[in-house]
Computed example of a mutant assay.
Amino acid sequence: MIPNHYTPSLSELDLLMVRAIPPGGNWKDIPLSVPSQRLEQIRASYARGEGSRSTYYGRMRHDAPAHTISTYFNRPGNGAFVHYAQDRMISQREAARLQSFPDSFVFTGSKAAINKQIGNAVPPLLAFQLARALGEPGEFIDLFAGAGGLSQGFHWAGWQQLVANDIDAAALNTYRENLGGQTVLGDVCDSEVFNQLVAAASAHPRTSRPRLVLGGPPCQGFSTAGNKRSMEDERNHLFKKYAEFLKVVRPDGFIFENVPGLKSMEGGRVLTMVTTTLEEAGYSTEVWTVNAEQFAVPQRRTRVLIYGTRIGAFPLTRPRAVTAWNSGDLLVPSSPTVGAAISDLPPLAPGADGSASVYASPPSSLYQRLMRGEITACDFLSEVRTGSKNGA
């Protein structure tokens, strides 16, 4: 069984466009004779100098990492989500693999809910390395947990979950089904939900092990892809409730994850506001920008991390990159590729569900062995660091 190996159906027009796009190609490869109002809008925008839209109607390359997996990976016109060899969109399982979720991780809910869970997640393999950089395993509380990308990585590193929270019932059900533990459904701004989380954390006596708060508030308000990037968006004030939680629970530290747009919003003033608010909760902070492809994730995904620690609690150690992708778009051998990530999954026709299918081949890469549970994340990274097989 290969759970969630489902790919959406495509219209005849979509298929006509998809078949015209070569690996690594995009909307520019679609003939002008193809009738599409969407393509006309993209071409007009490009002619006005409003950006290349280089990932629109993009087809993946098997020999390169994927572009960022968003919540719209089921649509050909919203990114580079066309399978590198088959005339279809990538499946939910393929998207999950490119995010570094193992095949044993089963997403639940409607198809739209699952797309959202996968696209919004923090890659677990990146989270694993964040956890490992902190030293000895400890305990964590996961706010805005989603389906559990951060938690999965910390679980791999031996950390213990105390409680997790999200407002999305489908995402939290996926979290609970895969990771277990106590969960609290609801808006953290609701006083009853907030108090439940405080009580759940307080029910665990403090030990010598470090205790962290994980998670970043929903990123849509900060995203450069959105139309609203101002403090008028209520989602952009959730960091204040995050800081309030830190004041009450007093963990040893926190990891606040968000999109790169947080750094540029209102000329950097919003990032200063966020870090100042978190520091006023009693923490020193550092802001790091991390690229997922540098941490053995087969995806070019950039995220901003605000690390915080109470003075004297434990040192902040930035995780060390293990793979690379250079500016000339030439693959550095140590970087896992799309092919190394998904080539063993069975082929699909548009609209097909291959969840009951068997693997198309034995694992042909270290990364596939990790995804299929044959090796641990620790073993995988050890092999990647030695450069012996490099995940490919």
Rank of each mutant, 00 (worst) to 15 (best):
F194H: 12
S208L: 11
Q161D: 09
Y175P: 12
G186L: 04
W156P: 11
A203I: 08
Q196R: 15
W156N: 04
L214V: 01
A147L: 04
G186I: 05
G148N: 01
L162I: 15
G180I: 11
P205F: 10
N195Y: 07
R206L: 11
L185D: 03
I167R: 10
V213D: 01
Q160E: 14
P205Q: 05
N195M: 14
R206P: 05
A145C: 05
S202E: 14
L179S: 01
S202N: 08
G181M: 05
G180F: 05
Q196H: 09
A199I: 11
L179G: 02
W159F: 06
P205T: 10
F154L: 03
Y175W: 09
L212Y: 02
R176K: 15
N173K: 12
Q161L: 14
F154D: 02
L197T: 06
L172P: 02
A157V: 06
G146Q: 02
L197A: 06
A147F: 02
R211C: 15
S191M: 07
V213L: 09
G146H: 02
T207W: 08
L214N: 00
D166V: 11
H155T: 13
N173S: 15
A203P: 10
S202T: 08
H204P: 07
A170H: 07
V163F: 00
A200N: 07
S151W: 00
S202L: 10
A201R: 05
F194M: 09
T183I: 13
G146F: 03
A170T: 13
D190I: 11
A171R: 03
S151Y: 00
A170I: 05
G186S: 03
N165V: 13
F194R: 06
A157M: 14
L214Q: 02
S208V: 06
S191K: 08
V198G: 04
G153H: 01
G146L: 03
Q161F: 15
G181V: 08
H155I: 11
V188M: 09
G158A: 15
G186R: 03
V213W: 00
P210M: 13
D166H: 04
Q196F: 15
T174A: 03
P205C: 09
N195S: 10
V163A: 01
S191P: 10
L172N: 01
S202H: 05
A170L: 11
T183V: 15
G181L: 04
S202K: 10
P205K: 08
R176W: 10
V198T: 09
D166A: 07
W156D: 06
D190K: 07
T207C: 08
N178H: 01
Q152P: 14
T174L: 08
L162A: 13
G181R: 03
N173A: 08
L212V: 09
